[in-house]
């Protein structure tokens, strides 16, 4: 019964799209059947290795670097009030710069190769991670800090990172969706390969079913990454959700 409720609406929507578009003669809105055929033809071949995987690899590299940088800097800033007060306005500004405008700047610095794209992802993803880490570290319970001091427990490694993990995860989630956007944009703006590049090529070449299939693929990647993230979050924050649920009961 529950499964039915989960798939009911998506099934209706899918069927509706299929049926309504079936006889479509509109050049820009091809039948869903055509799009799905194009999807298989376009993406189940060399393009996976040539375009999809390199894009995802750049996303992974940039995201990983942003995680390390953001968490490390966030811990330092969060633990030292003087540092935080000094850098706060600058961080406010840097965070407010819309990440996509970094693309033209970084093209200037790093050309249009892999390095530029990874740098774009890093410099867009790092802020939500950093700022959330700062908040999380600042909010660490003083009693936990005292406990670490008394019992000789190394505070940063054993306590601060774990105690701040709910906020760090929130930042990492925001960063992931920014990262996907930047992965696509950096390739749309200037590139010779990659997912974003290919999709825009299809659009410019009026390969309409292929373009629709690319949009579909980008959507699926976004959904898959979000699902993957939830999986990781569930294991990292199991204690946190359990604790919250326990508190609610009392």
């Amino acid at each position: 019964m529950k499964a039915l409720k989960v798939i009911a609406l998506p099934a209706v929507l899918f069927a509706g799209w299929w049926v309504l578009s079936a006889g479509s003669k509109d050049f820009y809105r091809p039948p869903l059947r055509t799009i799905l055929v194009a999807f298989a033809d376009t993406w189940f071949g060399a393009r996976i290795a040539d375009d999809v995987l390199p894009s995802l690899a750049r996303l992974g590299a940039g995201y990983a670097v942003a995680l390390v940088l953001g968490i490390a800097a966030g811990v330092v800033i969060g633990r030292h009030p003087a540092v935080r007060e000094t850098v706060e306005p600058v961080l406010e500004f840097l965070r407010a710069v819309p990440p996509p405008v970094l693309v033209p700047i970084l093209i200037l610095v790093a050309g249009i190769g892999d390095l530029m794209k990874v740098l774009v992802i890093v410099s867009g993803c790092v802020w939500p991670i950093l700022l959330n880490t700062v908040e999380g570290v600042r909010a660490v319970d003083g009693v936990l800090a005292d406990t670490c001091a008394v019992y000789r427990v190394p505070p940063v490694r054993r306590m601060v990172l774990r105690a701040a993990s709910p906020q760090i995860v929130t930042g990492a989630r925001q960063a992931l969706s920014i990262g996907v956007i930047l992965m696509v944009i950096s390739e749309m703006f200037a590139a010779r390969s990659g997912l974003g590049f290919t999709v825009v090529q299809f659009q410019r070449g009026f390969q309409i079913p292929e373009m629709w299939s690319g949009v579909l693929l980008l959507g699926l990647i976004g959904v898959a990454l979000a699902a993957l993230f939830r999986l990781v979050e569930r294991s990292v924050l199991r204690w946190y959700h359990g604790q919250r649920a326990a508190e609610k009961q009392h």
């Binding site: 998506p10 820009y28 956007i181």
Partner: peptide
């Protein structure tokens, strides 16, 4: 609420920039 939750969860993470080619075309 029950019927839409899976659809919302599916549509939400679709990166909006994926729509760029579509938007330009249309």
């Amino acid at each position: 609420r029950v019927l839409t939750s899976s659809t919302v969860e599916f549509l939400r993470p679709i990166p909006s920039v994926a729509l760029i080619p579509l938007a330009v075309l249309l």
